[in-house]
Structures are given as C-alpha cells and as structure tokens.
C-alpha cells in the first residue's frame, strides 16, 4: 500500500514576478517500509520535493497523498501536528540544540506532542539506544563527533514513531567512515520496518537504498530498483 503518492506534482517559485519552475510534473509512489533514494544534481528539484513530501511546503499543482489523504485544506498548525506525529527529519547540518544533552535533544519532538511528560524520557532513551548511543545519553551535543551527532538526529527522528524518516544529505558533512555508520543505522532501521526517504547527490550513498528516483531539471529522469544494493559495514554495534 502506498504511503506516499504524488501525481504530476509541480512547484513554481515566484520571485519579483519572475516564475522559476522547480518541479515540473513528478509522479511516483513510495510504499510502507521502503527505503528510497531521491537523487539529482543541485537544482534538480530534490530539496523542493523533500519539503513538499515533508509538509514543510505546498505544491503549486498536482496531487500529493500521504496515507491516501491530501493535505490541501490543512492549516499550518495542523501541518505542524502532522509533521510531529508522522514524520522524522534528518538534516545534513544535524541541527542539534547546543548546550543540550543527547537525551534532551532526542525528546524535543515529544515536547510538541500530546504525549504525557512522564513517558518522554523512556521513549527518548529507547530511541537513543536504537542508534547505539546509550553510553552518550547525558553528554552534551557539542561533545560528540559528527557521526554521533547525526545518529542523535536520527534518534530524534525516530522518537515519535514516525511513519517516514526524511534524510536530507545525512552523510554530506561526514567523513566516509562516519557516513558508513549512518547508512548502516538507516539500513538497520529500515530492516525494523521504518520507511526511509533519502535525498542525496552521491550514487554511492544512494545505492544503500532499495530504489532510486532520479530527478533532473524538475522532471523525473528514472525510477529504478537498486540491483546490487550496498550493505554498509562498520555497524555501530560492532
């Protein structure tokens, strides 16, 4: 069953009366439990697509159904609630809060959820364990390495039991070894049933997923399954 379904999705930015098309009609669907990469050079529209898929932006035209539903009539507060409950985000720049512990960073989404406060820590701790950072639980984010920071960000994306995790160039700021650990973490989560949408411009990274959607100039170039899927080594639990 399709979790994400887009049909003829278009997005045009208007700046000072000049129209710049970013997406010019994209259609695909992503099923529950899939690990999909969206690839393309810069300017291909992949970030725009991610923002629309992640309810951070709205399309100009076309249809986007998440769980069979469109969000066309939703207010920004309702979208914030949906982002909080259904989606997890991992960014290239980690975006952790400084001077804040790993645990507190991870439980941040719960602050904005309706969840009872006494369950926050337990849930956050579980997410931290899932990314293999239990021993770093009470360290401040600034004391962590880049790879560890990104794993904290992944734990934060997990904590609210998101239906899909959007990872935007998650290895872009990391050395290859740390990047390997991140890909391993994502593959591991995917194995546990999480749907993952990865944005990247590197073929090598994209080949860790099951399927690659390639964009170019706002149009879909290809949508192909990965034949020889890479399995990340350097598992964090090793």
């Amino acid at each position: 069953m399709a979790l994400i379904e887009v049909k003829d999705l278009r997005k045009t930015y208007v700046n000072d009366g000049v129209e710049t098309p970013a997406l010019r009609g994209v259609s695909f669907s992503i099923g529950k439990g899939e690990f999909v990469s969206i690839m393309g050079p810069s300017g291909s529209g992949k970030s725009t697509l991610l923002h629309i898929l992640g309810f951070l932006d709205r399309q100009t035209s076309g249809v986007y159904k998440f769980n069979q539903k469109t969000i066309d009539g939703y207010s920004s507060d309702e979208l914030a609630k949906l982002r909080n409950e259904k989606m997890g985000f991992v960014f290239q720049m980690f975006n952790l809060l400084p001077r804040t512990t790993v645990l507190d960073n991870v439980l941040l989404p719960l602050v904005y959820s309706g969840l009872e406060e006494n369950q926050w820590e337990q849930k956050a701790a579980k997410a931290v364990e899932q990314v293999g950072l239990a021993h770093r639980m009470n360290h401040e984010s600034s004391q962590l390495s880049g790879g560890e920071k990104q794993r904290v960000a992944i734990a934060r994306a997990l904590v609210n039991d998101a239906e899909v995790i959007f990872a935007d160039e998650p290895t872009g700021n990391l050395d290859s070894k740390s990047g390997e650990v991140i890909m391993d973490t994502l593959q591991n989560l995917n194995k546990m049933g999480h749907t993952i949408v990865l944005i990247t411009h590197e073929t090598y990274t994209a080949e860790h997923s099951q399927r690659i959607i390639r964009l170019k100039d706002g149009l879909m170039e290809s949508d192909t399954p990965v034949k020889n899927r890479r399995i990340a080594n350097g598992h964090f639990t090793k």
């Binding site: 992640g54 951070l56 920004s76 507060d77 914030a80 609630k81 982002r83 909080n84 409950e85 997890g88 985000f89 960014f91 720049m93 975006n95 809060l97 941040l108 989404p109 904005y112 959820s113 934060r156 609210n160």
Partner: peptide, 16 residues
C-alpha cells in the same frame, strides 16, 4: 534561526 527552523520542522507551531 536554525533552531527555530528545526523546532518548526519537528512540530512546533507558530504559537509554540
């Protein structure tokens, strides 16, 4: 600014 962006991405409303 980035903190605000992050908080909004993970579900903070304008009011929050």
């Amino acid at each position: 600014t980035r903190e605000i962006g992050l908080r909004k991405a993970i579900g903070a409303t304008n009011r929050d």
